[in-house]
């Protein structure tokens, strides 16, 4: 976030915070919005781009599929023992291994993606974060310069913020 001040608005009502997001966005200010649950209205209003997590997921899944089949085929070729008249490279039997590895790698890649994009672990919480945001309040933290902070405060108050604070540094 750019700017040397963080203006924090705490809201009780969802429609109020959505109004604040729209106004801050139209003023082209950098901001973060907070919610105590995954609220699609807030995430869509704040950022219209879709999450790239899905690309990690599909890449991981395809890697797993190739890995699973390769593991089973190469291990069987390295130790070519014919069992119960089945082929050494017995593709139907290896489908299970390929299938399980697809899911395993896809899931783990998704985990890595969510940690990466959510910037987790993040031991030092961001300036402006309020513990009420995981409880029952919505919030918005707007990054601005000192000269803009009065305007931002009045915008947030006009949108219905219960409380507005200005914090230094980001």
């Amino acid at each position: 976030m750019a700017g040397d001040k963080a203006v924090v608005g705490v809201f009780t009502y969802l429609d109020d915070v959505l109004k604040a997001i729209a106004k801050v966005k139209s003023a082209q200010l950098d901001f973060r919005a907070y919610a105590p649950f995954g609220c699609p209205e807030i995430t869509e209003a704040a950022d219209e781009q879709r999450s790239p997590v899905r690309y990690f997921n599909i890449t991981g899944a395809l890697t797993g599929l190739v890995f699973g089949f390769a593991l089973a085929i190469l291990c069987s070729l390295d130790y070519p023992l014919r069992v119960s008249a089945k082929d050494v490279v017995s593709i139907p039997g290896f489908v299970v291994i390929g299938y399980e590895c697809t899911i395993l790698f896809g899931g783990l890649a998704t985990l890595l993606a969510v940690l990466h994009f959510c910037r987790l672990p993040d031991i030092l919480r961001k300036v402006g974060y309020d513990p009420r945001f995981t409880d029952d309040k919505f919030g918005i933290v707007v990054s601005c310069t000192g000269s803009q902070s009065d305007d931002v405060q009045s915008t947030l108050k006009s949108c219905g913020a219960d409380e507005v604070q200005v914090k230094d540094g980001l």
């Binding site: 907070y34 919610a35 998704t110 993606a113 959510c118 987790l120 672990p121 919480r125 995981t134």
Partner: peptide
């Protein structure tokens, strides 16, 4: 909690990932 704050960016990626999981 890994420093979770519930910001819009976190929720966006989280919800996408959760559906994929």
């Amino acid at each position: 909690s890994l420093g979770w704050t519930g910001s819009n960016s976190q929720w966006k990626h989280y919800m996408a990932a959760y559906l994929l999981f």
